[in-house]
Design a binder for these strands. Structure first.
Length: 275
DNA sequence: ACCTAATCCTGCATGC
DNA sequence: TGCATGCAGGATTAGG
């Protein structure tokens, strides 16, 4: 599933390949998760030029020459793929942006959870606000004291579901929540008030380190993810807990186990990550 | 404040 | 072989 490192990888690839390219045509093959209506979307995108691509958490924002923005959330199985001009859509291609230059951009999503949303500049800024994202974990302004203060507002909450909430920190999903907790040796069900300061610090550092490494590796192709060039996310070879159930813990050789926590599959080492 | 379950959807694994 | 069932989950929402 695309999380911060995967979305950032796609953002960089789009930034490199479609900025200053004109959108000559938009083909909508399935418009249920597209706003506004199909005709208004096409009308307001066609003929515009891509100016820049931004990311906030897992949300992508494609800024157009008109000042309007297309927001893209890939959710579970969404993809934005650069394909040679004129490449035919596949079964799960929902929208094709036909651009000047070498590439078209195809939006594919076989599970159809993701969405595209076109908004004017004014509405776009409000829309980003409405998400109430926590800080960007790789922004220098994201400090340990900010992280700690935000979490301490929820002393009885369990750490893992809280990390997935985007509220104290933006962009973390199941893969990186599981990996960060393994690295900091914290049981995913630990209540925030029961995490000692030094372990919380370890968690903070693990999140930064793991996300940075994963971006450098082009994300994690553990589920359905491939980058905008169809490339593999190499962090999949560095996973220590996610999808490692049944395998020996890299730290202590105990078998990694998996259980459902907050309705989500959660892998951890029962020996290193004690409650 | 905190938890659970349902919702959106399809591919894939399982079982008979 | 093929058909039915159920599981997976990011984010939101409803209800306890």
């Amino acid at each position: 599933m695309p999380e911060l490192p995967e979305v950032e990888t796609i953002r960089r690839q789009l930034q490199r390949n479609i900025v200053n390219k004109k959108i000559n045509d938009v083909v909508v093959r399935w418009g249920k998760r597209l706003e506004p209506s199909r005709s208004k979307f096409i009308e307001n995108v066609k003929g515009r030029t891509v100016k820049s691509i931004e990311r906030r958490g897992k949300l992508l924002r494609i800024n157009l020459s008109s000042g309007w923005s297309i927001f893209v959330h890939l959710k579970m199985t969404g993809k934005l793929i650069l394909k040679r001009t004129g490449t035919e859509p596949t079964k799960h291609t929902h929208v094709v942006f036909k651009l000047n230059g070498k590439y078209d951009v195809h939006w594919e999503d076989f599970r159809k959870f993701g969405f595209l949303k076109l908004l004017s500049k004014e509405d776009a800024d409000k829309y980003v606000e409405s998400w109430n994202f926590g800080p960007e974990p790789l922004d220098p302004s994201f400090t340990f004291s900010k992280f700690k203060m935000c979490l301490n507002a929820y002393p009885n909450a369990k750490i893992k579901p809280k990390l997935l909430e985007q509220k104290c920190i933006a962009g973390i999903g199941n893969i990186y929540a599981v990996e960060s907790l393994w690295s900091a040796k914290i049981h995913p069900l630990t209540q925030i008030k029961d995490i000692p300061e030094d372990k919380l610090k370890k968690l903070f550092q693990a999140i930064k380190r793991i996300l940075k490494t994963a971006i450098a590796d082009g994300g994690t192709s553990a589920d359905n993810y491939f980058d905008a060039h169809g490339g593999e996310g190499k962090y999949v070879y560095k996973l220590k807990a996610y999808k490692q159930e049944g395998k020996p813990c890299a730290n202590c050789k105990t078998k990694i186990i998996k259980e459902k926590i907050g309705g989500r599959g959660t892998a951890y080492c029962p020996k290193c990550q004690k409650l």
